[in-house]
Design a protein around this nucleic acid. Structure first.
Lengths: 341, 341
DNA sequence: TTGTATGCGTTATCAC
DNA sequence: GTGATAACGCATACAA
């Protein structure tokens, strides 16, 4: 190996390795002169303390892992960006893991992260339907963990969520105010906690306005584009709703496509509102009314909570919960006017 | 520390650490019985070989770094997904670095990656305008590097690109065939190699069809949404183009917004085509004609090239170049018909 | 302020 | 087939 290391740098400077080491840590006392001499030479020889050796010594990795169900989704990419920003400020690196909504991958990732590779985990979960007690099996050795958006209710740990119940309630109410009487609710997985909370807001809003809740109007979709296309078209033709509330952006898109195909006019025949962080929602045809979550801020807050835990500023038995507000942005897809643009 | 390590596992089983170690590597000879006994106990105690110790020993990290200009962009998130998939298959982990298009961050990331943290780098560059010779300063110690999409022409290393010249030529020709006579070209940074290549296709297509190239029709935009909005509105009102070709998806969105504000009808008054990987381009108002790059495949191929290098299957002096084809998908934003929708 | 010695957790080499 | 030991590169306790 011709590569540089602390020993060679020490030799080149006729110093000991400990002095070199000190030059790279802030705390230790070392004369400014030698420190500068060392740093200069280090730069010249392109030396950097080996990350793995340092971390082995210090028992921490300055790395956090981010686990998300998908990447090609505006919400998650924005959230990750937020996490990235905060992590970078704190000198941390970020490992990315995508589960593709597969529970097994999630379990696998988490398990393999418990080998020192990461100091903490920020996750939006994928396996609500499954046994997620696996997280408790790590006992006190479990890495600091922060949930965001999609959480496991029964795992005690810090979390950043939005007020989904409220938003759903208001969204449904908005549709009602725009004249909708038969509002379908499209969800990816009814059993997901996020689906349940959002659904409850929908149900309660119906109740408040004296509209009978019909279970058939809950349309359970999947992660497959093709399947959803069929499901949604069936729902539209058979149930004949005059409003659709989708719990995920993807389902709003699918609804749009279905309406194009079926010649259903939005918002004339059908009004659509959706959870979505899409920045170009105003450019859709028609522009989409959205419940927009503060994705970037969610990421930042999640990272903030994790760093608090890493700094031992959080009582383990008192996980923190941050609840952020989403905004309903009304656009043409729920306009009471019949004519589209 | 109550945490588990190889020594404690060895004690618990009354075996030596070497035997334990062997159970976790594939090659060494070890009796099946003890191996299974070890793995079982390991699972029970939740033991995994410490990543940092292993990597310090083996001098590799099983980690690759991905550096991109931005995340909240369909192209990059799809590309990263592709990289992720291939990396995972090979048992590698992924570190993400976002430069926000800042050259300094890029240099900083790269420099700090040369401490063993990553075995290789996949990057779409941000600093074309600057001195990127810094990459050569590492000499033979430079980490294996693969460029994708945005590259430095003068750095010799493997790369995955699309045939931008061709696509631009065809895109421009398409606008001409739809009746455009004054086609503006919107670019983020003229000096970027990717901007230049794409621009040349535009210029040559004009030439082929006997249209005079006007430099004023090249509109140099920035990364700021507000600035671009002003720039584009000015360009539309002053230059009065009847077609716009944008080199980045973001500029097409900005053009749409500008047209909404200025009451310019697309495609009636102005036809728009853009490089874009947006999956919902059909849902825009009007649906957007795109040059769509195979983003996921680009990511997969880039990862593939990197692993080839890591396996020493690439001659260092013979970097590989993969050129993929983009597809032009014609939609309403370039329709010859006057009426939208 | 600087140097010496030790150990972080693992794996490879060499014995047995 | 298994065990003892050195070494990976670094950071700290302690000595000087």
């Amino acid at each position: 190996m011709d590569s540089i290391n602390i020993k060679k740098l020490a030799q080149a400077l006729k110093l000991s390795t400990s002095t070199i080491s000190r030059a790279f840590r802030d705390n230790s006392d070392i004369s400014i002169a030698t420190k500068e001499r060392i740093l200069a030479k280090a730069k010249e020889l392109n030396y950097q303390p080996n990350h793995y050796a340092s971390n082995l010594r210090e028992q921490k990795s300055k790395t956090i892992a981010v686990i998300v169900p998908e990447l090609a989704n505006n919400y998650f990419s924005q959230a990750i960006h937020g996490i990235e920003r905060v992590a970078r400020e704190n000198g941390y690196h970020i490992l990315i893991y995508v589960t593709d909504d597969e529970y097994k991958k999630e379990v696998n990732f988490i398990r393999h992260l418990h080998n020192g590779r990461a100091d903490g985990i920020i996750m939006s979960v994928s396996g609500e339907g499954n046994d997620h007690n696996y997280l408790n099996k790590f006992g006190p050795k479990r890495l600091p963990l922060v949930f965001f958006d999609r959480i496991y209710e029964d795992i005690e740990t810090s979390r950043v969520i939005t007020n989904d119940y409220n938003s759903s309630f208001l969204a449904t109410e908005h549709l009602i105010e725009q004249g909708c009487k038969r509002i379908a609710y499209l969800v990816v997985n009814k059993s997901l906690s996020i689906g349940k909370t959002r659904m409850q807001g929908y149900i309660d809003a119906l109740g408040k306005h004296g509209i009978q809740y019909e279970e058939s109007l809950i349309v359970d979709c999947s992660n497959s584009y093709e399947e959803n296309s069929i499901t949604i078209k069936q729902a539209l033709t058979q149930l004949k709703p005059d409003g659709v509330f989708t719990s995920v952006e993807r389902l709003a898109f699918a609804t749009y496509y279905a309406c194009y195909d079926l010649n259903i006019s939005i918002p004339g025949d059908l009004k659509v509102i959706s959870f979505s962080s899409l920045e170009i929602a105003p450019l859709l045809n028609p522009s989409l009314t959205t419940i927009t979550q503060p994705a970037t801020e969610i990421g930042e807050q999640a990272a903030g909570l994790l760093f608090k835990m890493l700094d031992n500023k959080t009582d383990e038995n008192q996980p923190e919960e941050v609840i952020l507000e989403s905004k309903i942005i009304i656009r043409n897809s729920t306009s009471a006017a019949i004519k589209t643009h």
